[in-house]
Write a protein that binds this DNA or RNA. Structure first.
Length: 809
RNA sequence: GCUGGUAUGGCGGAAUAGGCAGACGCAAGGGACUUAAAAUCCCUCGGUAGAAAUAUCGUAUCGGUUCGACCCCGAUUACCAGCACCA
């Protein structure tokens, strides 16, 4: 068969007849399968697209055959920096290049032969979509979850533009390689931290890869400790430190404030002023990457001021040091050199005191300093003898009595910075009024103007657009006002797209609540692991926020998640232009067809692992599919038939049903490689019996039908062609998956391994239905076994029916 | 450093629940068919010893539990990924 022609033919027919469109009436039986949508780049589909979309489609096709009403939409995450950079370089407008790329990519995606429901397609850069992204922003704002504050951002001094975190590679600009600096700008944030606790707790409910859940837990970084109040020695002011080790408080010999701490300016003594100012200036200049480097020496300077340790009244020096982060906890820490690695180094360098207050709980614990484990409190007054676990609570509680401490939970998670000084994104729907301040513009969409200039001069094209920025009045008071010049992070667009798909053409609302309550959550979500702490976390947050606003009534967007592995270049490195190891699927698809290519991706890798690309096996899959074709045609050809059902027929039938059982278990697990292997075994069995021993054409044909059905999720075009060539008139796509006949899978006799002291010694074939006691009797009576026993009496006999008999002497 | 993961032939990878390690395929070697090639079909294919039957070793390393361990437990090593001065 000419696979390329066949694929064209069926693809077209399926699309015309909408063989597999979602049935909205049968929503109770829905199965929402979603692949992460992609950015419409100018390049063609790469192997990763095929791997994700092709094989997830196989999963979806399997679910259809199992009777599920599958919803599998597709769309484009179409805003983003590459199109804008392309515009700066070539002058081609992002809107033009993006829609062109989308048209090209749609065609390519259709070639895969996936059953995407294009009627529900969404494109995030179209005003019909982004008006609702802007609506989302407004809703978050109204509910206190969007706010503006001054914050440091990544700034490339050479490109004169703000960079996203992902564009900063080891502290350098990914485009021009110059060092990125920090710049303070007023930015919009989403208050994801309000959901930190729920985002953490609900992970337990999810059928997600453990490593992804672990990454999110890590990212959220919950830490339970205490806030402790230190008062200045002169009694004028106080400040708090956060610690998880209040049990070490008696060992505190100094405190350190972040250089940005608001107290620094007021408490520094005249004598130390120059030094402190110089240090703060220096810190402001160093970039964040350098500052956060663990390798860097712990620097700091003394402010000249003193504070009182509230637990014992001791006077301790107040230092500033750049290893203390202003943005975490209280921006101040206590220094306990005896029980903290960093504090120890800091104290040694600056000649600060070291008092041991924790002893190892057992004598054999290493007593060298710093001792950072939990132990038993010593030199701690009334707390002596308490364990660290008890003490870290007891000390805070004691202080709480005097109002000098409280139990406190901190999270590492920060609020989500969503402003971008870019053009190609959804405009932030806010108007700045000189009288009313920031005011939402709810006349949506706030459309991106088309006629903008792309110059890398540091100002976003939007900010320079006179009409967009200034031709606006305040919705509240009507005064002349200005628009917010920034656009939203593209992750905002992708944080809710799965909610829009089921109701993609709703012009009045972002969605119908009753409808998406039925359609969601997504039953199977498939995409790359690199989104663990970005998209997957944002989407969960937005879902929970919308739930609390009443727009939907479920807690989590993605019930079950699978990460496809990464297909690497043949050299084992990630495919990239700079490595020169990019393999294009086109050549293979053009030579062998989409089905062969998909089958090879299925067979050659463990799906969740991926691995280096190698095309050694692709010919083998081509050959194998040809083989399937030959057998299918021979079964339905001029085949001599009888109604015999002898041993050969029984055996073929057995393999057939074992295969059905195995493949039926493999597909839902994304275990495509073993599914193919099992089907190859069935073909081998057919080959073994074909035309020689099996004379029963009905069995042969039924077996062949089952094989084609099992194979159709992976090779839909070829199997559809064979299905029709063998006289069927329905579409195989909507056939039911074969059902395993358990009774047929059992052989009447089994070969058991006989072991002596766990070493294999003999093989005995017995009736498969025998009970262990009967097996033991037969085995011990066997001639070979009696010979090997040589008169000895076994101490013990272990019988595993269907497997082995182990005789212990 | 922390967290998670991985480690099985020449290669990609199997192994339900602790029960015959290496399924399935690739590569390699041999053979049939053919003038020849392609295609197809058959056989061999973890190491060592042996003509063979067979013996023996073997799932990163070391140890343990068990009649029996790729699988469970303890320690170690290497690699991959994410986070990384989070007090």
């Amino acid at each position: 068969m000419d696979k390329i022609q066949v694929e064209k033919k069926w693809n077209q027919l399926w699309n015309e007849q909408k063989v597999y469109s979602f049935d909205e009436k049968d929503v109770d039986n829905k199965h929402y399968v979603l692949e992460m949508f992609s950015y419409p780049s100018g390049a063609k589909l790469h192997i990763g697209h095929w791997y994700n979309y092709g094989l997830t489609d196989s999963y979806a096709r399997y679910q259809i055959m199992k009777g599920k009403n599958v919803f599998q939409p597709m769309g484009f995450d179409a805003f983003g920096l590459p199109a804008e950079n392309y515009a700066i370089k070539t002058g081609v407008h992002p809107q033009d290049s993006t829609f062109h790329n989308i048209a090209v990519m749609e065609e390519q995606l259709k070639n895969i032969g996936a059953m995407f429901d294009w009627d529900h397609e969404i494109i995030t850069c179209s005003p019909e979509y982004y008006r609702w992204t802007q609506w989302l922003f407004c809703e978050l704002y109204k509910h206190g979850l969007a706010y503006r504050k001054k914050a440091p951002v990544n700034w490339c001094p050479s490109c004169n533009t703000v960079l996203a975190n992902e564009q900063v590679i080891d502290g350098h600009c990914e485009r021009c390689d110059s060092q990125v600096i920090k710049k303070d700008l007023t930015q919009w944030f989403f208050k994801i931290t309000a959901y930190a606790e729920e985002l953490l707790n609900d992970l337990d409910k999810l059928d997600w890869p453990e490593k992804t859940k672990a990454m999110q837990r890590n990212w959220i970084g919950k830490s339970v400790g205490g806030e402790i109040v230190f008062t200045l020695a002169d009694g004028s002011e106080s400040f708090k430190v956060f610690t998880t080790r209040a049990d070490t408080l008696f060992g505190c010999t100094y405190v350190v404030l972040a250089p940005e701490h608001e107290l620094v300016k007021r408490i520094t003594t005249a004598e130390h002023l120059d030094e402190v100012n110089a240090y703060c200036d220096e810190v402001a200049k160093t970039n964040e990457i350098e500052r956060l480097s663990t390798a860097k020496e712990k620097t700091g300077v003394f402010t000249g001021a003193y504070a009182i340790n509230p637990i014992n009244g001791e006077k301790v020096e107040i230092w500033i040091g750049d290893y203390v982060l202003a943005s975490y906890g209280t921006g101040a820490v206590m220094g306990v050199p005896s029980h903290d690695e960093r504090d120890y180094k800091f104290a040694q360098k600056h000649g600060l005191g070291i008092h041991r207050v924790i002893k190892g709980a057992t004598p054999d614990v290493d007593d060298s300093l710093p001792f950072c484990e939990y132990g038993v409190m010593v030199n701690s007054g009334e707390f002596d003898g308490m364990t660290s676990e008890q003490g870290r609570v007891a000390v805070v509680e004691k202080l709480a009595e005097k109002g000098l401490g409280e139990i406190k939970t901190n999270y590492r998670l920060r609020d989500w910075l969503v402003s971008r000084q870019r053009y190609w994104g959804a405009p932030i729907p806010v108007i700045h009024c000189p009288y009313c301040g920031e005011v939402l513009d709810e006349n949506l969409p706030v459309e991106l103007p088309y006629d903008v200039e792309f110059k890398p001069d540091g100002t976003s094209p939007l900010a320079k657009h006179e009409k967009f920025i200034h031709d606006v009045t305040c919705p509240k008071c009507g005064a002349k006002a200005t628009r917010d010049p920034d656009t939203l992070d593209t992750f905002v667009c992708s944080s809710w797209y799965f909610l829009r798909y089921p109701d993609a053409h709703n012009a009045e609302n972002p969605w119908d609540t009753a409808w998406i309550d039925k359609m969601l959550p997504v039953d199977k979500y498939v995409g790359g692991a690199e989104h663990a702490c970005m998209h997957l976390l944002y989407a969960r947050f937005i879902t929970k926020a919308l739930r609390d606003m009443g727009y939907l009534h479920f807690d989590e967007p993605f019930k079950s998640l699978v990460h496809q592995g990464v297909i690497l270049g043949p050299d084992g490195n990630r495919m990239s232009k700079s490595h020169g190891n990019v393999v294009s699927p086109d050549e293979y698809v053009n030579n062998y067809g989409a089905d062969v290519f998909r089958c090879y991706l299925a067979f050659g890798f463990k799906y969740t692992e991926g691995g280096p690309w190698s095309d050694d096996g692709i010919k083998a899959l081509n050959k194998w599919l040809d083989r399937v074709e030959r057998f299918a045609l021979s079964a339905y050809g001029d085949y001599p038939t009888t109604s015999d059902f002898g041993p050969a027929e029984k055996e073929l039938n057995r393999v057939r049903h074992i295969t059905i059982k195995a493949v039926d278990a493999d597909y839902p697990e994304f275990s495509f490689n073993t599914a193919v292997a099992r089907m190859m075994e069935l073909v081998n069995a057919i080959s073994k019996y074909d035309g020689q021993k099996v004379k029963n054409a009905q069995l042969y044909r039924e077996t062949m039908d089952d094989l084609l059905k099992m194979l159709t999720p992976l090779a839909p075009h070829i199997t559809e062609e064979l299905w029709h060539q063998t006289g069927h008139t329905t579409s195989i796509v909507v056939e039911k998956f074969p059902v395993c006949d358990e009774s047929a899978t059992k052989a009447s006799e089994v070969e058991l391994l006989v072991q002596f002291n766990s070493k294999p010694k003999a093989r005995i074939t017995v009736d498969a239905t025998l009970a262990p006691a009967e097996i033991q009797q037969i085995v011990l009576a066997d001639a070979k076994v009696t010979e090997l026993l040589n008169g000895a009496t076994p101490k013990k006999v272990i019988v595993i029916p269907g497997r082995l008999v182990n005789i212990i002497l």
